[in-house]
Design a protein around this nucleic acid. Sequence first.
DNA 1: CACAAATAATTTGTACACAAGTATTTTGTA
DNA 2: TACAAAATACTTGTGTACAAATTATTTGTG
Lengths: 140, 140
Amino acid sequence: MGKVEHCITFLLGKAYQKSQQIAKQHLNAFQITPVQYAVLLILWEKDGQYIAELGTRLKLDGATMTGIIDRLVQKNLIEKHADAKDRRINKIMLTEKGKSLENQLINAMNAGHQEILSELTETEMVTLKAILAKIGDVKR
Amino acid sequence: MGKVEHCITFLLGKAYQKSQQIAKQHLNAFQITPVQYAVLLILWEKDGQYIAELGTRLKLDGATMTGIIDRLVQKNLIEKHADAKDRRINKIMLTEKGKSLENQLINAMNAGHQEILSELTETEMVTLKAILAKIGDVKR
DNA sequence: CACAAATAATTTGTACACAAGTATTTTGTA
DNA sequence: TACAAAATACTTGTGTACAAATTATTTGTG
């Protein structure tokens, strides 16, 4: 009885899909995507990181990062600055606009998280996070 | 302390990413993707379903389905048959090649699932599936 | 019957996500 | 110092995934 609905890959995918939909909805007013938000979140923590660093943190391919960074530059939320010491590197710096949106965006995403987690008890949430981390943290 | 690593959306995404990588790896010899496998799995259950039906089951957009179906046709695993009763509908039928791969593909994916679940205890797996279903099943 | 509304599938455009390959620059080592 | 190896970023190509618009067909309602 190998129904697709009982398959762990499918269940993970659909739960992820759902969380993405909710996140998108809450970010929609700002015209940024969930992964673009994730990049900004890391930059608010520490400005001036370079692309490979951001990609490692988010576990995303360099090719994927190039596109995400391009779109954030176009939206005028970040800027690329060539490093004088190492000309391979582009330091990513928040613009004033990028800095100014921190509180609003975090509030919007917190509301999204509440919505996702509203389906679950506190215990379920803690359990879920622990198990997901176990699956996702495996080295590749 | 809003680190991205503690964010449920991120954790779901990375666990999903991991499971996709493992599934891809196990399906690689057959040159089909995880979602293409999912379509075949539903067709092995019952041949001759139409595209919207498959999309509903997999919770995928019609536009997404069109592309997936196209590629499975190109690989000669399925065929599209216009329905005589309702000319809007394309019934999707397995080819002989599509039928013949059932056992091999299921075995390959079972190995993949074992690999993912090997990180978890039996209890964790049951708990995880139940919570994921709770998140994913919410109507949209 | 006529015609608006609904349904099935496709098309177009945008955005990830990764593999494979390229260009440039830096580092390590002989 | 010369030069292979590594690192950074980008480009190209394939494959999801969805929104919005389009086409073709069928159904429901007056």
